[in-house]
Design a protein around this nucleic acid. Structure first.
Length: 886
RNA sequence: GGGCGCAUAGCUCAGCGGUAGAGCGCUGCUCUUACAAAGCAGAUGUCACAGGUUCAAAUCCUGUUGUGCCCACCA
């Protein structure tokens, strides 16, 4: 294994490359070894403070706040993906002269983290109650210290250029203060209230969860039909949740349903109990569904609760917080699912099951944290009244103050903010921001802000619940900058510029930040652009998940192929808003690209490429030089446009092809003869190559920061590409040179194809005559001969084939090497193709409708095609005739 | 039940009205003085199906089928 160190990287590059054209590259190994380069570079960047932003700076600010990863985990490829994009955006802005801040931090992730630590405790045979609240919370903090560091290490490894001096955690003192402040303000504005409602309850986590923390799955259930009532006054209800019948306080039918009209207003007997319940008429009931009669359990079903409200029904809670039946009698103490089957059995015994139960697939809510079936439960909780907040959040996007990218995702956003229900924010957990509310002896409520003393005296107690973790993350864009204080940071860096995040948390996070940001910051938006990313998937487009066993630790790939390779692969897959498939093969391909950049730079340095001194006058340059400079500027413009549109896949691809195909391939190959020739021409090209490389490395740097830093500092002798200027279009264009090189490429390609068709080995030299009269190709003869392995024609030269390409003719003497039959076959094939082409073009040009309507440009193109085809036919026919008769 | 999206080369995806593209993979030939993690050449597509609009459709419209995602208080 090679473990050679790149000395110019790990030591400060004192040497100027100009001091000896062949000295520096000798120190570059022929293969790029990322592991040797990346670590030291990152530490150097941090030490030099490149990533620190300053509120006092005169430069315009560009701010991105990181979507804080949960302290629970480690970073997966999805994080690596988003981080790559954020880092690239920030690095480019920094180079463009912005005071670029990328603010890092982590989320305390209330329920997720509490679950993790509880699991850990369970392994020790303990529960959180054994420790008590305070000790448990201490334990979670310990856990955070231990595992949080892992994430930070991964971020360094990835090359994330974040401002470590501003690292935040949602449970920090400052952020907790922000939480209390906004809670109090919302409370006083009557946008936070307390109410008893049906909430989603997780009987395992033992807490309320919000609507979006519920995941619905199609579960198999059984629909049973139960006869209620006695004698004449009976009806049949259908249910999948028989156990809740113990809490039924009515049966509802549709007001227009004649089948049940005679029962409305009467009371009927509830089986298995000694209670009677009323029959009520409610339009919510669908007469077509089931039997058209619905059992109503206001305490255990949101719809039933609503019916109960409309009809003044009482609510009977029949289960405790763990889902165990609490009603006195034979079912007391049974778990809700045991109770279901037991109750059905009991009903059957009484002959109450009128139709056999039948399988029924329906959508059932599960806790998004632990997959336990959610139990709707009547409960007293704290709520955010979202109406006015959501209105403002919607308007900010509607009126264009915030742009959602890609745009069609805004539909989803509007659907949500326009139909949002009030948000249940209290959680019956211990890990999180405790609700800053105290209850007096009489149950009176006092809300206390961060700067006030809580009420003292007998009987005052603080609410034991904590806030939903998304409550504090909703404050992230401003709480991290010092709010509620009017800090210089807040002044300088808010509103933030871009939010890069997955479309899967539009509702959880994005919408909440919008609501809170606009509210707390007096209508100033939290971010100007929301760039939504897709999810990272495996190479078959499958979702990465532990159960599929296709989860990849980004560290594994970074260790093997380098962070640049992982970053480039992710950027290259980043089509806006769509999922990103990634496989190891692709990372290898990116590693190869990094290696290519490395070796191209070696070549350049060996040939004296330099950035010293002004660019030579174009009049002194070869067409090849002018061509590559022209293409370079076009690429700068192209890449800028893609950046501004968050088109990472396109910009990566454009850079990949420009760098590899045009610079490292054509330009380098075409210039080799110039460099070998030495003299002024070589000096000019060396300067041009230095320029092209300099700019290309700067363009690539935001995406592949490490390899570009190593090479750029070596090439230029300057301090760091991190703080270099972003390339600008110099305005230099040369259409003539571009055209000329295209022609050279065409000739080279044609002749190569011919050689290959003839079965000539790539290295085999062949005598040739080049007739370049009347073309601009004369200047490229040496280069073309070198690329095509064409020797000068000797005295005994006898052309056996001549290829007219682009106005020039290349004649080859293949005597001895040529297979006549193969050549005849090849020509015949070409002839057929040309004839087909001619027929197609002729057909089109004979079509009057086409001529009448098609734009001139298109018609011209077809005319050209026809001419080319006709010329080809003449040429090929002539060549066929010239072939010796077999 | 609603809404959105996608179906293009073996795989993953660009293209979105004017002769079918990229990366990887595949075949053949090459260690050609930066790079074999490379170079050169090559093969492979009724652009899901059926209609329609147009001089021209992978590209626009309609329908069908398949597939993915989001939303919803269908007992």
């Amino acid at each position: 294994m090679r473990a050679r160190t790149l000395s110019v990287v790990t030591e400060t590059p004192q040497k100027s490359p100009a001091s000896g054209p062949n000295s520096t590259p000798a120190e570059l190994p022929t293969q790029y070894a990322p592991a040797d380069v990346e670590g030291p570079l990152y530490e150097r960047w941090v030490e030099r403070g490149y990533f620190e932003a300053h509120a006092k700076s005169d430069k315009p600010a560009h701010t991105i706040v990181i979507p804080p990863p949960n302290v629970t985990g480690s970073l997966h490829l999805g994080h690596a993906f988003q981080h790559t994009l954020m880092d690239a955006l920030t690095r480019r802005k920094r180079m463009q002269g912005f005071e670029a801040l990328w603010l890092p931090g982590m989320d305390h992730a209330g329920i997720a983290t509490q679950n993790k630590v509880e699991q850990q405790l369970a392994e020790e045979g303990k529960s959180r109650h054994d420790l008590g609240r305070e000790a448990f919370v201490d334990r979670v903090w310990q856990w955070k210290e231990e595992y949080g560091g892992k994430i930070l290490g991964q971020m360094r490894r990835l090359g994330d250029g974040v401002d470590w001096s501003r690292e935040r955690f949602t449970m920090d003192e400052g952020l907790s203060k922000a939480v209390q402040t906004i809670f109090k303000r919302l409370y006083e504005d009557e946008l936070i209230y307390r109410a008893e409602r049906i909430i989603n309850w997780c009987p395992r986590c033992l807490t309320a969860i919000s609507d979006i923390e519920v995941e619905y799955q199609e579960d198999d259930g059984e629909l049973v039909s139960i006869q209620y009532g006695e004698g004449e006054e009976t009806l049949v209800v259908a249910t999948t949740r028989a156990e809740t019948m113990l809490g039924d306080t009515a049966v509802a039918v549709h007001p227009d349903d004649e089948r049940y009209a005679h029962l409305v207003g009467k009371r009927i007997k509830l089986p298995l109990t000694d209670r009677t319940i009323p029959v009520v008429a409610d339009t919510h009931v669908d007469p077509e569904f089931g039997t058209g009669a619905v059992k109503v359990t206001p305490a255990h079903d949101p719809n039933d609760f609503a019916i109960g409200q409309r009809h003044g029904l009482e609510s009977m809670t029949v289960m405790d917080e763990r889902g165990v039946i609490t009603v006195h009698g034979p079912f007391e103490g049974l778990d809700r699912f045991e109770a279901r089957s037991t109750i059905v059995a009991a009903l059957r015994e009484q002959g109450r099951i009128v139709a056999e139960k039948r399988p029924y697939t329906h959508s059932v809510g599960h806790c998004s944290r632990c997959s336990t079936t959610v139990e709707p439960r009547l409960s007293m909780q704290w709520w955010v009244k979202v109406g006015p907040l959501a209105q403002a959040a919607g308007d900010a996007v509607r009126d264009g103050r915030v742009k959602i990218h890609p745009e069609d995702m805004s539909k989803r956003y509007f659907d949500w903010v326009d139909n949002m229900h009030d948000w249940c924010i209290s959680r019956q957990l211990w890990w999180g921001h405790r609700i800053p509310v105290w209850y007096g002896p009489e149950g009176e409520v006092v809300c206390v802000g961060p700067d006030e003393e809580p009420p003292s005296g007998e009987g005052w107690t603080q609410d034991t619940d904590v806030l939903d973790t998304w409550f504090s993350s909703g404050l992230w864009p401003f709480s991290t900058l010092g709010w509620p204080e009017k800090t210089p940071d807040l002044e300088k860096f808010y509103s933030t510029d871009v939010l890069v995040t997955g479309h899967d948390i539009i509702f959880f996070w994005v919408a909440r930040m919008m609501m809170f940001g606009l509210y707390a910051m007096d209508g100033e938006v939290p971010f100007k652009t929301i760039a939504l990313t897709g999810l990272v998937r495996d190479e078959r487009g499958k979702k990465m998940s532990k159960s599929f066993g296709n989860v990849v630790d980004p560290l594994d790939w970074m260790n093997e192929y380098g962070s640049d390779a992982v970053r480039f692969t992710l950027a290259r897959g980043a089509n806006p808003g769509t999922d990103v498939p990634i496989g190891e093969d692709w990372v290898q391909a990116s590693r190869n690209f990094a290696n290519k950049i490395w070796n191209a730079t070696r070549f350049a340095l060996m040939n004296g490429a330099t950035v010293e001194g002004p660019l030579p006058d174009p009049a002194e340059m070869s067409a090849t030089d002018r061509w590559i400079l022209s293409r370079l500027n076009a690429t700068v413009v192209e890449v800028d446009a893609y950046y501004d549109d968050f088109q990472f896949a396109k910009l990566s691809d454009a850079l990949y092809h420009f760098a590899w195909d045009e610079v490292f391939d054509w330009y380098v190959e075409l210039s080799k003869t110039t460099f070998m020739g030495g003299g002024r021409a070589a000096e000019v090209s060396a300067r041009v190559l230095g320029e092209v490389l300099d700019v290309t490395l700067r363009l690539l740097h935001p995406i592949v920061p490490f390899v570009t830093e190593a090479l750029w500092t070596t090439l230029t002798g300057k301090e760091s590409v991190v703080v270099a200027d972003w390339p600008a279009d110099s305005g230099f264009r040369d259409q003539g040179a571009e055209k000329e090189i295209e022609t050279v490429q065409q000739v080279v390609t044609e002749v190569r194809r011919f050689r290959s068709d003839q079965g000539l080995q790539p290295g085999q030299r062949v005598p040739a005559q080049l007739d370049l009269a009347g073309t601009a190709l004369a200047a490229h003869e040496a280069a073309m001969r070198s690329l095509l392995r064409l020797q000068p024609a000797g005295d005994d030269f006898a052309a056996t084939a001549s290829l007219p390409v682009a106005g020039a003719t290349v004649s080859l003497d293949l005597s001895g090497a040529i297979d006549i039959e193969a050549e005849r076959k090849r020509l015949a094939k070409d002839l057929a193709a040309a004839e087909k082409e001619k027929a197609q073009a002729t057909g089109k040009l004979g079509n009057e409708a086409f001529l009448a309507k098609a734009p001139e440009k298109v018609v011209d193109k077809i005319r050209t095609r026809l001419e080319t085809a006709e010329a080809d036919i003449v040429r090929i026919t002539a060549q066929l005739e010239r072939l010796p008769k077999g």
